[in-house]
Amino acid sequence: MARILKDPGVGYKSNRNAQRLIINGSSNVKHINRARTIDDLYTYLINISWGLFLAYVLLGYVLINAIFGFVYLLIGVQEFQIVKGSLWEDFIHLFFFSAQTITTVGYGAIAPNGVWAGVISSLEALVGLMSFSFITGLLYGRFSKPKAKIKFSDHIVVRDFEDTRALMFRVMNKRTNMMIEPELNAIMSITEKNETGEFNRAFYQLNLERNKIMYLPTMWTLVHKMDKESPLYKYSKEELEALEVEIYILFQYHEETFNQKLYQLHSYDFSQLKIDYKFDVSYDFDEDGFTIIDHHKLNDIKKI
């Protein structure tokens, strides 16, 4: 008989429209009334996508130069060694002067020629030094931050296995280096309606045939036997297809490149379930006897 776990931190309560808690390795939980600090900014900028990060850098660069260009315009064009033109032309000239000042390039075509112009341009040079130091630190943090590159199969399958049935899914390393002592732990939550009509989650440790190996050079198929100790033992095939189940996965291994242990989260729900299917062979051997791993075959399944 499967033993129900105590709440692992996601709550027993549920409802018919409850979304998955983990999607693509990230939390799908919304936070409200959360206190924010300046420390959150660094964490946010380290974890966002490269496209969004570079967009923020470009936007900040343009905005700062536009602000200083406007300040220089208020001081007066006569404070700079440029020929006065229209308002737009003056602003463009001062915008580019701001860009040269904040980057400490200083081409020399435009130079401050007054006290206030000198004070503001000196202040902008300080802002430039500080902001570029901040961006450099963020770039280093983003490049140096170790990230696990584990790929999980798109589907989980249920098939006859030995003297019972089994639930299976596959993982592989997206890099070519060796994963040392990979270990996978999984918790299954089953959402069902109770006697009062409310939806509650029950949590179970998902016992795997083997959840830790010495190293992973190819793909790894994880197997959960649906025997009498399994929380899925009592369900028929039809009931499994209609069951609301989520599997929370924590994958960890020692990464030799960074010389530290890395972690990756993942989850499955039973919309990804395929019954009476099996995973196809994912590797072969070449003429010289070397093992060939085809990354495109991770998700290959076939009907039994």
Rank of each mutant, 00 (worst) to 15 (best):
M1W: 09
R3N: 08
R3M: 05
I4C: 05
P8W: 08
V10F: 10
Q19W: 06
R20I: 06
I22P: 04
H31T: 12
H31I: 08
H31N: 11
H31L: 09
N33F: 09
A35H: 05
Y44I: 11
Y44F: 14
L45E: 07
I48N: 01
L54K: 03
L54W: 04
V57R: 09
L58T: 14
Y61A: 00
V62P: 08
G69E: 01
F70M: 05
Y72F: 15
I75S: 10
I75D: 12
G76D: 09
V83E: 11
K84R: 15
H93L: 15
F96L: 14
F97R: 06
S98Y: 05
I102H: 02
V105M: 10
V105H: 11
Y107A: 12
A111P: 01
P112R: 03
P112L: 10
G118Q: 05
S122W: 12
S122H: 08
E124W: 00
E124D: 01
A125E: 07
V127A: 13
M130N: 00
F134K: 02
T136Y: 10
G137N: 09
R142C: 07
K145T: 11
A148L: 02
K149N: 08
K151L: 13
F152L: 10
S153N: 14
I156K: 02
D160S: 06
R165S: 02
L167D: 04
M168G: 00
V171T: 12
N177H: 07
M188Q: 07
S189T: 11
E195S: 11
T196Y: 01
E198S: 09
F199A: 02
R201P: 07
R201I: 09
Y204S: 02
Q205M: 03
L206Q: 04
E209V: 02
M214Q: 07
M214N: 13
T221D: 03
K228W: 01
P231L: 02
E239K: 14
E244F: 06
Y248I: 14
Q252V: 13
Q252I: 06
Y253H: 14
Y253A: 08
H254K: 04
L262C: 09
Y263C: 06
Q264W: 00
H266M: 08
H266K: 07
S267T: 12
S271P: 01
D276Y: 05
Y277D: 14
D280A: 12
S282P: 05
Y283H: 15
E287W: 02
D288P: 00
I293G: 00
D294S: 12
D300L: 11
D300C: 06
D300S: 13
